[in-house]
Write a protein that binds this DNA or RNA. Structure first.
Lengths: 138, 138
DNA sequence: CTATATGCAAAGTCTTTGCAATGGC
DNA sequence: GCCATTGCAAAGACTTTGCATATAG
């Protein structure tokens, strides 16, 4: 079942067929789809779903803090439903594959007060770039 | 003078008026311009410079490792000439302002071998998100 | 019943491409 | 003079918007 769906229902999110399908597509670990990929998968189950609705829904889920927006070096953003456990990303520079990882240290601790320049920091995003095992052998 | 320009000349980079202007615009610290901003500033000195040339030039400079591409949560990428000294970014979630910072630890050291999943890591990108002092008082 | 969500199609933003003309070296 | 680089305009990729219609609660 869908944890994401449960939580959204619990938050009183108005449930429609489209939103349900989008939430289902996004459910799981190591999911990092673009808006267009979400639309394609959602359309397998609900052919008439429009791109606009997918974009709306993704934007809402990001606003609710239920999914994360991941900016890659490629053009399209990716959406990561694993918003509740802090983690970082391993990104393949060749094929763009993304993997969640859980480093040991706290990256925030590495930024001394003197280097914060008056910013109130709420979040740290860490991206490790390299070549994935699949691309390395290809 | 322009350090960037010096290095490029030394590398045998074919010098044109357009490339010189782009390199000059990008020279300096804490510079994080979008392609369009680079084009606008370059056009102040060289009115006929085209966007295509700016995009070409930026792409080359990234390829040469002379500038860095910074993907923000906004749409347009930003270009950072400070490629020779490892650093991270502080980004204001409200206004998008970017600042270079130099944390104490080595972020790579925080990723144990068991968490690398066969990737050969070449680079780490760290982005601290928060509210800048200017937005905090506004 | 009513406010919110949807679909459509058009517009907007950012980036790339094809190709003839230009100009460094 | 040769070949890389440029400018232009058009196409392409990704995302947002406006508004009439549909539907969850």
């Amino acid at each position: 079942m869908s944890d994401l769906l449960e939580r959204l229902r619990g938050r009183g999110w108005r449930m429609t067929a489209q939103r349900r399908v989008v939430a289902e597509v996004l459910d799981g670990d190591h999911v990092h789809l673009t808006a267009d990929e979400v639309h394609a998968r959602a359309a397998e189950r609900l052919p008439e779903i429009s791109r606009a609705t997918v974009y709306n829904t993704l934007g809402e889920l990001v606003g609710l803090g239920e999914i994360l927006e991941v900016s890659t070096d490629r053009r399209a953003k990716r959406y990561d439903p694993n918003a509740h456990r802090p983690h970082q990303h391993l990104v393949c520079s060749r094929c763009g594959a993304i993997r969640d990882v859980h480093p040991s240290g706290d990256p925030l601790a590495d930024l001394p007060a003197a280097e914060r320049f008056g910013f109130t920091i709420s979040d740290v995003e860490v991206t490790y770039r390299g070549i994935c095992p699949h691309c390395a052998t290809a």
